[in-house]
Amino acid sequence: MRDVPGDGKRLSYYQFGSTALFASQYDQRFSYCLHVPRGYSEDDERRYPLVVAVHGTARTVQTCRDEFAGFCEEHDCVVLAPLFPAGIGEPGELSNYKYISYRGIRYDHVLLAMIEEVAGIWRVDAGRFLLTGFSGGGQFAHRFTYLHPERLRAVSIGAPGVVTLLDEEHPWWVGVGDLEERFGRALDLDALRRVAVHLVVGGADTDTWEITVTPDSPRYQPGADLQGANRIDRITALALGFERHGVPVRLEIVPGAIHEREPLIPSTLAFFHTVLSGQ
């Protein structure tokens, strides 16, 4: 066991390096794991930058964490990977977390509670963090950004299948027109313009079988066709929406990459490097 000066808590072996999965004390249906760098010091009061990596539909949460472990060692930061299990509220349900709110569960609140819990154990900078997600995680990440831009230094959104455009003429989830009515938070464009936004997708990510939203789809809304047909169309539409509102965006299309996370990770890591190095 190791002592953390000043807070009276003791950290175990499994709370350093690539950690165990811990149940969230806010809601134990959800859990998280971390990578805490080897250079983490228990002898000073510094706060370590925090990277939050959100899984896709397959919930490979520890893989998401491990993909950023080397980066966290190099940049002396901590990565948090939340787990939002499938089947919460309905057996077999896969997509609830992607849309932020589902049957009374606010997934943004679940994540923020995890971050607060982590900040009470490890010395992380929980005020403004870096957020990333691929596919379903990219859906969560960009919608979280609309709701909580003041909490983010940067966001890297990877190949989301269905997007919510920065469009105040359409209600959620197609747009953000009823954000305050639905979530109790008004759109804060000034805060959003201070977030470094990165969008990345594979140049061969053109399959539509999983992401087509038709009038008979459970989540269909008028205006769903505004986002385009495939993930390249949709991330491009997302970028244009940000740019029209004065939010600087870096859009990367990785040549030859299909809908796989691994080929996109280097782009996210390079982007986060520029953020943490002040470039």
Rank of each mutant, 00 (worst) to 15 (best):
T208H: 06
F183Q: 03
G223R: 05
V201G: 02
R194P: 00
P218L: 13
V176W: 01
H198C: 10
T212F: 12
R194V: 00
P222T: 10
D205M: 05
L189Q: 09
E181P: 02
L192V: 02
Y220N: 11
G203Q: 02
D190K: 06
P215I: 06
H198T: 05
L226M: 15
R193Q: 08
T208G: 04
E180S: 07
R194W: 00
A229T: 14
H198I: 03
V176K: 00
E180Q: 04
T212I: 12
T208E: 12
G184Q: 13
V195S: 03
I211E: 15
G202W: 06
L199W: 01
E210P: 00
D178I: 10
D178K: 09
L226C: 12
F183E: 03
D178N: 15
T206F: 01
G202Q: 02
D225L: 09
Y220P: 09
H198M: 07
P222Y: 06
R182P: 03
R182V: 07
P222I: 05
Y220S: 08
T208R: 12
G228W: 04
E210D: 13
A191G: 06
T208A: 07
E210W: 15
A186H: 04
V197W: 00
E180N: 03
T208L: 08
G175Y: 01
A191L: 00
A229V: 14
E181N: 08
N230V: 07
T206H: 09
L189A: 05
A224I: 06
E181S: 12
A196F: 01
R231L: 04
I211N: 14
A224E: 12
V176N: 00
R231S: 05
A204N: 13
D178L: 05
L189C: 05
V200T: 12
V195N: 03
G175C: 03
V213G: 10
T212L: 15
T212C: 10
H198P: 07
T214R: 15
R193L: 00
D188S: 06
V197R: 01
D207S: 12
E180V: 02
A204T: 05
N230G: 08
L192M: 13
R185K: 15
A224C: 15
W209R: 09
D178W: 10
L199C: 11
N230T: 08
